[in-house]
Computed example of a mutant assay.
Amino acid sequence: MKPGTRRTTVGRVLLAVLVIAVPVGVFIGTIGIGGVLLPPALTWLGGLDIHAAAGTSSWAFLFTGVVGTVGYARQQAMPWRFGGLLALGAAPAAAAGALVNNVVPATVLWLVLGVVTAGSGAWNLWARPRETRELPAPAAVVVGAVVGFGSALTGTGGPVLLVPVLLALGVPALTTIAAGQLIQIPLVGFATIGYAAQGNVHFGLGSVLGVLAGAGALAGTRLAPRLRGRLLHRVVSAALVAFGGFLFVLPFLPR
């Protein structure tokens, strides 16, 4: 390939990867999920291996976590105590998940995540509305640990696993989405440390992606509170079904 052609191809690939960052951020800010799109984009469009894609995505999600947390806090919609308990379990588990990522194939985990995500979304779409509930503190810490490990293992940022789990447990949609912003910060922070220790983080690319995704997340935090109640619940549930379907086909896409 000629140098000029190679530069054009690289430019198009980078443009495609950077463009997807904004909608990913909007999804994260509005419905809590969307980060699952970034690692495969970095792999199939950007040419990164799966471990570097997960590590770079984790660094980018630190930006969306900060922006999303500030956005929901300004609207007085952040469940600080609940989110703190989730983060308490997620932080150490995320570091472990990042280390395991380097030695364990992710195909089976992607399929499990697909079942959890799509199954939870379908259940919440067609089941009768349930009474909302609060999780006891020990249960919140355990949920955080499970989410932290699984999210760091796949480089998905946290909410893509947290949202279906909390909705299935009867936690209100807006509380779930807001908590997902807060949990991202310690989760991806510890995950990034684990990935960086193995040389699997491209900080420059991840920072640019993070800034763009953060801008999208800010817009999303302003949209979600306008969809309060059952409407937000149904929007999130439908999105879970769609993202779950994507997770099913993800391991089989050509690289």
Rank of each mutant, 00 (worst) to 15 (best):
L209R: 08
P172T: 12
A168R: 11
G220L: 08
G121P: 10
G29M: 01
L38W: 10
G210N: 05
A191M: 09
T156N: 08
A145G: 15
V208E: 11
A196D: 12
V163P: 02
T69D: 01
T156G: 00
F243N: 12
T56M: 07
I28R: 11
M78A: 13
L45N: 08
W126H: 14
F82T: 13
A196H: 11
A98T: 06
L18E: 06
V141A: 15
A60F: 02
G144E: 07
A52P: 05
A179W: 00
Q198E: 11
A106G: 01
W59G: 01
V70H: 05
A196F: 14
A145S: 15
G148N: 06
L15V: 12
G71R: 09
L85K: 08
L231I: 15
G68Y: 11
A168Q: 10
A94C: 03
G150C: 07
G155F: 05
A77F: 12
V13T: 11
G148P: 06
P254C: 03
A60E: 02
N124K: 13
V208P: 04
G245K: 01
V142P: 10
A238N: 11
T43C: 02
F63N: 03
G157T: 03
P23K: 04
P3F: 10
L99D: 02
T176P: 05
